[in-house]
Nucleic acid binder design. Structure first.
Lengths: 208, 208
DNA sequence: TCAGGCTTGTCAAACAATTAACAATGTAAG
DNA sequence: CTTACATTGTTAATTGTTTGACAAGCCTGA
């Protein structure tokens, strides 16, 4: 479809998607890059340039049809098909993420929870029974797993990631505070809470 | 101290800090930008350029002293003083974040938890009693609050943010999936899990 | 149906970030 | 003490991103 879209552009797409979703809820049918730029506090030029990476979705003299554009961005972001997610590490954060995926996004489905702690075996979180990490192999071989969320301590992140990728998992959503070394073709999306907090703390310090 | 450091640089500083911390644990005393670049998979040039935004921490022919550089970056990131954090919205994610802040980072201290649900009143999470949102005003007036974490639904994010900033809170760690409109001088650090997941899903789709 | 006004898609210019190159300077070994 | 080498800090070149400008073309009201 497209080739070599810059990461900067891709990071902005979910934000467009969100604003368009809100417009849709508000019953807005059409929007110009100018109106949208005012709402989103970005330049109209950037919006047009970003969208044109993927195709010409607008119409001169009219603007963009909100529903159409929303659907198109949805397609781009892979919101048209179901993504099956498993999660490894059912601690506090793991449970929160499990619930988050369960309720927040329709195109993602949590299908398995795994932990290393035997005392958690069989307990239910968000309606799913917790399994042991050594059951991962069986599970992945018998289920379609698109994404594995890693909410584990940084010490175990590397071995678990290796195991998962060896079993064919192609996308990791990594919450462990470590950079994972994965084979070619595997995607890692990091959520480094610690980095985020430190950035905040830097900005606070700078302000003073 | 410094002026106009680019956001791109700042985003990288916590990563340097982490790697230096690991080197320190491993008992490494000195490191060259070249060695570090190999470990971190970035260019040596970028490392030198980034660090030089804040001062000349290295020595020709020697490299960087790990302990010294670690401490300096710590200072830059505001890790030398305690940051007092409160959290609003003690749901699944809120509890996870409360625990996270409690155990993960020494320079941040969770000092208050707030929720709107009366049934949660007085319950303890991570050793802290949950208070009601209408007690926020009293609390902020009588305690030093550096950061407020917002783990609430997007509908309540805007009014709560307004209330907090009116009460003088200068930094928000926002987990709600909405862009907050805050007064000049208030810092917002967003953690948009949904955006992160969608970026992942985009990359999966693209790969196929 | 037509003219005037919008608004896009796109090209070019301005700006920002990254990488490369290298002179200056310190290290370290003999 | 001296020389060969390592490595920084910094300047210059390159690459990438954002903004500005405008022709082309559709919309809308008369």
């Amino acid at each position: 479809m497209e080739k070599g879209i810059s990461p900067a552009v891709i990071r902005r797409m979910p934000r467009y998607y969100r604003y368009l979703g809100e417009l849709l809820e508000d019953g807005v049918e059409r929007i110009s890059s100018n109106d949208l730029s005012r709402r989103m506090h970005v330049t109209a030029s950037q919006i047009r340039q970003d969208l044109n990476n993927f195709g010409g979705f607008g119409q001169q003299g009219y603007g963009y049809n909100v529903q159409f554009l929303y659907d198109e961005i949805g397609k781009i972001l892979g919101q048209t098909h179901m993504n099956h997610v498993i999660l490894v590490g059912v601690g506090n954060l793991g449970q929160a993420i499990a619930n988050y995926v369960r309720f927040e996004k329709l195109s993602f489905k949590m299908i398995g929870l795994f932990d290393i702690d035997p005392s958690k075996k069989g307990k239910e979180v968000s309606g799913i029974k917790i399994q042991m990490v050594d059951e991962l192999e069986d599970f992945i071989k018998t289920h379609q797993v698109d994404i594995a969320a890693l909410t584990i301590p940084k010490e175990s992140a590397e071995p678990i990631a290796r195991k998962l990728t060896e079993l064919g998992v192609k996308a990791l959503w990594n919450f462990a505070h470590v950079d994972l070394d994965v084979p070619e073709g595997v995607i890692v999306e990091n959520v480094h809470l610690s980095d985020s907090l430190m950035t905040l703390s830097y900005n606070i310090t700078k302000m003073k």
